[in-house]
Structure formats: structure tokens, C-alpha cells
């Protein structure tokens, strides 16, 4: 059974087809990258898969179950997690608390036990705390644990968001431009982290502008242009594909249509 299967997904905003009839599959341990010029519909596609937008057409199937348009928290319960291009950090919390929040599904319990500080509540919180510290160490943020999340650098916040997503031990992890705004060293760190996570069996769906990174780590690449899939395949195949080259470099007719 395919882990994640995207079948003919499409959405239109005010009559304009932002994404049209996109299909691909993701298997455990794979790193599938979605690339394409600005405005190609990559983030829109992500938002449909992760339940932020309701698709106009098509299906999203997770482990054989139709999860099309399901609320993000239900997808999370089924093992899908994501990060955001424009960061969604809990700014009102410490770095550690942000990471602990990723353990929500594991640490949640009866609210009455939490109100009365019962041993069961403390046990759950302690387990999440320990797990979160380990994850922070893994992304190199252990020393920032008690800082206000809002005070962190952009690159650190990116890693914190990944740590929070990893806390859920997702089966599928959607990463929307994890390396955007990061310097070369940080990009390489994130690069290693992603490869490591995939090696542990998690499927990764990646949107990324850093082509070097995409070519290096992807097992499979899906190319979008103007909301449609124009090519798909292994990195080497895709980089030789004339349609892809035209979309990126622009042809006579495509040059000004992109905006």
C-alpha cells in the first residue's frame, strides 16, 4: 500500500486554476521534492495535502484512507505533520515548550488530572519534557531551551519548527522551504537532518528553492509550472528534461507569464 498518494488534486481561486490535476505518490523513507518557479502552486499544493485548503478536485489518500480536506489536527493524529514557509512558531512560549507541544498527542490526557496536578499528569509532562530536550539537542538548540521562542534567529526557528514536527514521529513530513533564509552552514545542517529522518523510515515531501540541496537529497522530484505537473522523476532525469529547463530559464512565450 502506498503511504501517501495524491490523485488529480486541483483548486481554483476566483476562476484561476492555482493547481490543476496533480498526482504523485510518496513511499516510506523517500524524499520527494516539489519544485517549480515562483507562483507555480507548490505551497498551495502543500496546503491542500495538509488540510489547510479544501481541494476543488482530486483526492489525498494516506495509508489507504481518503483524507481529502481533513482538518490538520486529524491528519496529525494519522501521522502527517508539516512545517510552514512563513514559520508558525508559538511565540508566546519558550523554545522547550514549543518542542514539547509537538508531543501533544502523546502527552495529552484527562484535563481534570492536569488541573489537579495528579501524578499521571506529571508523568505525561515529564516524558514529553525529556523527549523534547532530546529533539532540541538533535537540531542543535539544547542551549536555547529556556529562551523565549520569539527571540531566536530565523535559522534557529526553522530548526525548532522541524524539531516540533519530528516530535510527532510522523509517517509523512511536509517541509515547506525548510532552508529558506538560512546560511550555507545552516542549510547543510538541515540537509543532514532531513536525510537522517528519511533514513529512519519517515516519508518526506519537500518544497525547496535551493536546487543544489534538492538535487542532492531527493529520491524523486515533481516539477510544477503554472499549477500543473510538467515533469516527474529522479533528480538526474528531471534536470535534463527540456520542459523543466524551459520553465526555469523561460522561453519566448513563458517568460512574462510567470510574474
Amino acid at each position: 500500500m502506498t503511504l501517501l498518494s495524491v490523485e488529480g488534486l486541483g483548486i481554483a481561486f476566483g476562476g484561476i486554476k492555482a493547481v490543476h490535476d496533480v498526482s504523485f505518490k510518496v513511499e516510506p523513507g523517500e524524499i520527494v521534492s516539489v519544485i517549480g518557479p515562483n507562483g507555480a502552486g507548490k505551497t498551495t499544493l502543500f496546503n491542500m495535502i495538509s488540510g489547510v485548503y479544501q481541494p476543488g478536485s482530486g483526492r489525498v489518500v494516506l495509508e489507504g484512507e481518503d483524507v481529502t480536506g481533513m482538518a490538520p489536527f486529524r491528519l496529525a493524529q494519522r501521522g502527517m505533520s508539516r512545517t510552514f514557509q512563513n514559520l508558525q512558531i508559538f511565540q508566546n512560549m519558550t523554545v522547550l515548550e514549543n518542542a514539547i507541544s509537538g508531543f501533544h498527542l502523546q502527552e495529552k490526557g484527562p484535563v481534570l488530572a492536569d488541573l489537579l496536578h495528579l501524578p499521571s499528569s506529571r508523568r505525561r509532562a515529564r516524558a514529553a519534557d525529556a523527549g523534547a530536550r532530546k529533539l532540541l539537542a538533535r537540531v542543535g538548540l539544547e542551549r536555547a531551551a529556556d529562551r523565549e521562542a520569539g527571540n531566536l534567529s530565523y535559522g534557529s526557528l526553522k530548526r525548532l519548527e522541524i524539531a516540533r514536527a519530528l516530535a510527532m514521529k510522523p509517517k509523512v513530513l511536509l517541509l515547506d522551504e525548510p532552508a529558506a533564509g538560512c546560511n550555507a552552514v545552516e542549510t547543510e545542517e538541515i540537509d543532514h537532518l532531513i536525510a537522517e529522518v528519511a533514513a529512519s523510515g519517515t516519508a518526506i515531501l519537500l518544497v525547496e528553492h535551493d536546487m543544489k540541496m534538492v538535487m542532492r537529497i531527493s529520491s524523486h522530484i515533481v516539477v510544477l509550472d503554472h499549477g500543473e505537473k510538467i515533469a516527474e522523476g529522479a533528480p538526474a532525469e528531471v534536470s535534463r528534461n527540456p520542459a523543466v529547463i524551459a520553465a526555469y530559464l523561460g522561453t519566448e512565450e513563458g517568460a512574462d507569464a510567470d510574474g
Binding site: 505533520s81 508559538f90 508566546n92 507541544s101 509537538g102 501533544h104
Partner: peptide, 13 residues
């Protein structure tokens, strides 16, 4: 968490 970001709260379940 939901006070900080409802979207992110949803993604952690």
C-alpha cells in the same frame, strides 16, 4: 499553543 498560532496548534494534533 493555540493562543500563539491556531494553525501550528492544528498541525501538532
Amino acid at each position: 499553543a493555540l493562543h500563539g498560532s491556531e494553525i501550528a496548534a492544528g498541525t501538532v494534533g
